[in-house]
Design a binder for these strands. Structure first.
Length: 1212
RNA sequence: GCGCGCGUAGCUCAGUUGGUUAGAGCGCCACCCUGAUAAGGUGGAGGUCCCAAGUUCGAAUCUUGGCGCGCGCACCA
């Protein structure tokens, strides 16, 4: 047995550290006392088992020691709730703000969630991201106020209340009474408030909930009013018609989201109807346009027929019916003929434009007088029939139908657009008016007697029958398609229906919106010109009003007599109006219910009661319009309305606009992202001038602040949607996800945060799976915790006392620690220490860079690699130092102390680096490692420290590269062993390494680390191979990136030629003359220069070798009898240890060993190393006997029976 | 239907301006360690890079067309 063995034997013979298990038990009992005032100074007597340690004497220091014991198996959820409570008690969030007051601002806007629904995992994600960056920037020295907010208005709230009341239509709400209904809405808004607050605190989202803005509060409403009045006064708020999806039975329009929920596949009648063209005197011709529709009930409202101008149409005639000719788009003629099962002859072929302007006979004449079509005055001069005329339209396609589109402006958005466009062509008032034979309840009016009083859809059959009777029906069939129904009343089909509505002229600002958008940093980038940009491109005016109850009332008052309107910017301005009355309605309600919120003053129905004298007509009164507004407008006003600006909060607004950072999920592109951008752009304008110099926004004037793009936000992280366990949409009924509370209680908030932050880029859709969350724990949190726990255990044993060594700790940065007694500069420390600090500071630099670029996913990856480096290389390779004798004190073991200082600095720095990601566990580490020894001399919380600054001087890039090389070599060595089934327990004589690139000086360095490699690989000797040709072959590879552009088509030949050439000769030529010539055949040749070729090293077969990109590692396969014996002995030791474990012996238990084997070889091996075996297994005696009962075990083919007896105890 | 995004190992995902042997984690199998221990480490197996055509000396990567999934807008006469 060689020297190394003896060393190890010596070590094991020392009963060092065998008390570990009991100590850990104690830690569990102690818990996390650091957080409370009751910092545990547990009596030593609880540390049972300590008596086994010869170094117990050193434990006397423990009593005054500052590091709390750490439990080996952490209970993260319990830890987190304790820390959370401590933060609350100590006001740590407030303190983190206080110390940055006056610093540069980092402005964050909270997109308001609605508190009338339960928070779900998606909110956990947004709240994690929204927490990370403010925390990070605060640690970087910026002042980041975080004001919470709640979105409280809108249909969802009304729906909740309706459910509760068991009603659903507007009529029922009215019957119930608007006033009590509103009261219910206001209460309902806070229904899940507690859950939201709990979630917010539990996930560690630091935000000021006490100062939250609330969209129904009077101050907020008044800011919104100001914005609306501003738009109104600038002529940007107008009243118009809009075609909406109308739930006729319920008397309300539905939002697109609601409509989307109600689509069902149904079969509707599909009819092809003839529209006979009219001649000059108004008589029907033979020729008929053929139009197609799946909603026959809209035919009475027909006003136009649309064709595509540049599309070819054909006039078809059936030989058996010469009295009628059909006009359809040429590409669709065949399919029509097929449907009709008829052969047609093409009479004529004409472009669509040939029909534009022609009059036709509509299918019903309810709005039309017989005779020639009446004409109307065109705006450009001249006359034209206003309606029942062919128009050209680009939206006409040949995908289906006939290429002739029936236009009923009352019942289709596109159709309505045609009407508006046509109206514009005529002199004011002369153009076509909207024809609508349907009442708001969905029944035909008397204007269409055939269907009068009946629901339109029920009239489809009668209409079709009538058309057939009059010879206008060309064809009829069933058509299966998706059609929306009311999501609350499944039998009620929705219809498109015109309603009056208020609009904001956003479309006029399209260019400004795009210019503003151009300046916003979107993550991921494609949002800017993709989804969001496209949305802006196709901007239409914002349909603002809602015919509902619970929302910000539209602050427009209209004159009874003249119909003229004005907007009111605040409640105060309203009260100042002449002859104002009606406020008493609220006052009375308040007297009846004193608990009534004063905010309801500005809500329906109270606000509707307030009227005043009209400035437009003497004796007339001004009354508010009945509508409330789209709640998205509320949210978009949040940048200023959260401060009540411009009525108040002037300073706050000036300081907090625009936002540096916002983040929400992708569904907000048309929601909050748009509402903010639109409102800000319309109100504050701005230019595309870069706003780099100084603040983009100076609020000098309350009404017209000068703004430069971008505003109101600079950077926006758009998060992906979260999916359930099965990759489907999360849904309560499907139960495909775990409640956040369950995750918190089981794995903890840090685990969930880490899963979100490090699991995937934030914009991919995240599959929220319990398994993935669970598995994210060991890879980072637990590993970090183990290192931390390892450190504390040994620091306590060895008396490592930074608090005593350093009087003024500062923030425990590298420079601060340098003042400590016993601290040595890295240059004087072991290489491993310098390596660790290199990694630490290099990672610090790159993490900072990545977080500054809002790339937390990459930053988390860096962090994870760093913790892996600490755990799996630094600690592992430093064990000898931590386990060596001597105390970690000045005057003690210098190398040991170095190791402690290195690990201490690393852990403190990692805690700060990771603090924005996993705020709880890092707090626990900081509290113990920093506050433990230093108390009040250091910041009480890791979140009150600065983010680490990389000290470039400590980064030794060569060392980092070379250490990585050693780790590679170790891995390759193991791979080589594994390939030959040479297990690590079998010592081998030698390992040889061939470096792929021998020029970097790495070889010498590696050779100097022979011990390390030998230790890792369990070999006796290390050598940089002197005759690599024995083991490897080299081949030349052309550098394709370089040669490709130069050689082009010759490249394949060149590759073949280079592969066939003698690599040694080429390399030599390049080395000597700077270039080498390789013939290509055909007289051509390739000139190779330095860098044109790469050398690839491959292991020759027949050796125990493994190759990687940087090295080939060869281990000696041959094992001498001595090596085999050592291997056998190690197998025996392993077997004994396994038995010890099976017998559940304490680590400290001494044993007696008795062996029996028929194998003389095995016996000889063991006997030769008996001392070693005894030491490794804590055996007081190890003997051989000839007969022993028991099951023999296999030691590399040698049977062995053994008996393990606990010394001094009963037979084990 | 239109738009945006995405299809890479059993699962979750990386893959930088096209370049030589496509990676990681988890899971699986085998092994190692047993003084951080209901942890830790190492190795291995596992891939038609959705399909097809094209551009190119060369395509997971670029183009076009399919197919599939997610989301958004519509539902279209």
């Amino acid at each position: 047995m060689g020297e190394r063995k003896a060393e190890k034997t010596g070590q094991a013979a020392r009963p060092a550290g065998r008390f570990l298990r009991p100590a850990a038990t104690v830690c569990q009992e102690v818990g996390f006392g650091i957080l409370g005032p009751a910092v545990a100074r547990r009596p030593l007597w609880r540390c049972r088992g300590l008596g086994y340690d010869s170094r117990l004497c050193s434990f006397s220091a423990l009593v005054t020691f500052m590091f709390e014991p750490v439990r080996g198996k952490p209970d993260f959820p319990a830890l987190e709730t304790a820390i959370s409570a401590w933060w609350r008690e100590q006001g740590i969030y407030g303190k983190s703000l206080d110390r940055r007051r006056g610093g540069p601002r980092f402005v964050f806007f909270e997109g308001p969630p609605t508190a009338n629904g339960m928070p779900h995992p998606g909110h956990c994600l947004t709240r994690t991201i929204k927490d990370l960056y403010p925390r990070y920037r605060t640690m970087r020295g910026e002042f980041c106020e975080r004001k919470a907010g709640w979105d409280t208005h809108g249909l969802p709230v009304e729906v909740e209340v309706c459910k509760e009341l068991g009603i659903h239509s507007k009529a029922e709400i009215e019957a119930h009474g608007v006033e009590p209904f509103i009261h219910k809405c206001q209460e309902s808004v806070w229904r899940y408030m507690k859950e939201w607050e709990t979630l917010t605190e539990r996930i560690g989202f630091w935000i000021d909930l006490s100062q939250a803005y609330v969209t129904y509060h009077k101050e907020f409403v008044e800011s919104v009013w100001w914005a609306l009045a501003e738009l109104f006064n600038r002529g940007l708020l107008y009243k118009g018609h809009k075609i909406v999806w109308w739930w006729a039975q319920g008397g309300t329009a539905l939002s697109s989201g609601e409509v989307g929920q109600g689509y069902r596949e149904v079969a509707d009648p599909s009819v092809y109807v003839a529209f006979p063209l009219l001649d000059e005197v108004g008589q029907p011709e033979r020729r008929c346009l053929v139009a197609w529709t799946t909603t026959p009930w809209t035919l009475p409202a027909n006003q136009f027929a649309a064709v595509k101008a540049d599309l070819d149409y054909v006039v078809l005639r059936h030989p058996g019916d010469v009295d009628r000719e059909l006009i359809v788009a040429e590409p669709l003629a065949a399919s029509l003929a097929e449907k009709l099962k008829q052969e047609f002859e093409v009479v004529e072929r004409l472009p669509g434009s040939a029909f534009v302007g022609r009059s036709y006979l509509p299918p019903f004449d309810i709005f039309r007088q017989p005779g020639p079509p009446p004409v109307a005055l065109l705006a450009a001069g001249g006359n034209q029939p206003a309606a029942w005329r062919v128009v050209a339209a680009d939206f006409v396609t040949t995908d289906s139908g006939t290429g002739v589109v029936h236009i009923a402006p009352a019942f289709g958005e596109v159709d309505y657009g045609v009407l508006v466009a046509e109206q514009a062509r005529f002199a004011t008032g002369a153009g076509p008016t909207l024809l609508n034979p349907v009442a708001a309840d969905g029944s035909f009016t008397d204007a269409f007697p055939m269907g009068s009083g009946r629901f339109v859809k029920e009239c489809d059959r009668d209409i079709t029958r009538d058309l057939r009777a009059r010879g206008l029906l060309v064809h009829q069939e069933q058509y299966v398609h998706d059609y929306p129904f009311c999501w609350r009343a499944e039998k009620d089909p929705l219809i498109q229906y015109p309603r009056e509505s208020w609009f904001i002229r956003t479309s006029r600002f399209r260019e400004q919106l795009l210019a503003n958008n151009e300046r916003i940093e979107w993550l991921p980038e494609h949002i800017k010109h993709g989804r969001f940009g496209n949305f802006l491109e196709s901007n239409v005016d914002w349909a603002l009003s809602r015919e509902r109850y619970w929302g910000t009332p539209l602050p427009i008052w209209v004159c009874d007599q003249t119909g003229r309107a004005e907007a009111v910017p605040s409640y105060e301005a309203l009260l100042a109006k002449p002859g104002v009355t009606g406020m008493e309605v609220f006052e009375e309600a308040k007297r009846a219910r004193p608990e009534l919120s004063d905010d309801l003053r500005v809500h329906k129905p109270y606000i509707d009661a307030v009227t005043y004298d009209s400035p437009f007509a003497a004796g007339s009164r001004m009354r508010r319009v009945s509508e409330v507004i789209d709640c998205w407008f509320d949210s978009g006003c949040m940048p200023f309305a959260q401060w009540g600006w411009p009525h108040r909060g002037r300073e706050e607004f000036a300081a907090q606009f625009p936002a540096d950072f916002i983040s929400e999920a992708i569904d907000q592109t048309r929601g909050w992202f748009y509402s903010q951008l639109a409102i800000s752009t319309l109100l504050f304008g701005g230019s595309a001038e870069p706003a780099d110099s100084g603040p983009a926004f100076t609020c000098t004037d309350a009404v017209d602040p000068a703004a430069g793009y971008p505003h109101p936000f600079r950077t926006c992280i758009v998060l992906g949607h979260m999916l359930g366990e099965d990759g489907q949409k999360m849904s309560k009924s499907r139960r495909n996800y775990r409640e956040p509370a369950f995750i918190f209680d089981t794995y903890g908030a840090d685990a969930l945060r880490w899963f979100f932050l490090a699991g995937q880029p934030p914009w991919t859709s995240i599959r929220y799976s319990e398994r993935a969350i669970r598995e994210s724990v060991p890879e980072f949190l637990l590993r970090l915790w183990n290192v931390y726990s390892f450190f504390v255990i040994y620091a306590r044993i060895d008396g490592f006392d930074p608090g005593g060594a350093l009087a003024e700790p500062g923030t425990l940065d590298h420079a601060d620690l340098a003042r400590a007694r016993g601290w040595r500069p890295p240059a004087e420390r072991a290489e491993l220490d310098r390596w660790m600090l290199s990694e630490l500071h290099a990672t610090t630099a790159s993490m900072t860079e990545k977080l500054d670029a809002y790339d937390h996913f990459a930053a988390a990856g860096e962090l994870s690699r760093l913790v892996d480096a600490v755990s799996n290389w630094f600690v592992r390779r430093s064990r000898d130092r931590f386990w060596s004798a001597g105390r970690a004190e000045p005057g003690g073991s210098v190398e040991k102390l170095d190791a402690y200082w290195t690990l201490y600095e690393t852990l403190l720095t990692v805690a700060r680096l990771a603090a924005p990601f996993v705020p709880f566990v890092t707090e626990a580490i900081w509290r113990n490692l920093a506050c433990g020894p230093f108390g009040d001399r250091v910041p009480a919380s890791v979140h009150l420290t600065d983010y680490p600054q990389a000290a470039d001087g400590l980064v030794d890039r060569d060392l980092v590269r070379r250490m990585a090389l050693v780790r590679d070599v170790a891995s390759l060595g193991r791979a080589a062993r594994a390939a030959e089934k040479l297990k690590v327990r079998q010592p081998l004589a030698k390992v040889e390494v061939i470096l792929a690139d021998p020029d970097v000086g790495d070889a010498d360095w590696l050779a100097a680390h022979a011990d390390l490699v030998c230790d890792e690989l369990n070999v006796k000797e290390f050598e940089i191979c002197q005759e690599p040709e024995r083991y490897i072959s080299r081949s030349l590879l052309p550098d394709l990136k370089k040669l490709g552009p130069r050689l082009g088509k010759d490249l394949p030949q060149a590759r073949a030629a280079i592969a066939a050439a003698d690599p040694t000769a080429i390399l030599a030529a390049i080395q000597k003359r700077g270039q080498a010539v390789v013939p290509l055949g055909g007289g051509r040749e390739v000139m190779l220069e330095e860098g044109d070729v790469l050398v690839r090293t491959m292991a020759k077969p027949g050796w125990a070798a493994a190759e990687g990109p940087r090295a080939v590692v060869v281990v000696a396969k041959e094992v001498s009898p001595e090596l085999i014996a050592e291997g056998l002995v190690r197998e025996v030791v392993h077997a004994v240890q396994t038995r010890r474990k099976a017998l559940d012996l304490e680590f400290t238990d001494r044993i007696e060993l008795v062996f029996a084997t028929p194998s003389t070889e095995l016996r000889a091996a063991v006997e030769a190393h008996l001392e070693y075996v005894a030491a490794e297994t804590l055996a007081e005696r190890a003997t051989f006997t000839t007969t022993l009962a028991g099951e023999p075990i296999d030691i590399d083919g040698h049977p062995l029976v053994m008996d393990v007896i606990r010394a001094g105890g009963p037979h084990a």
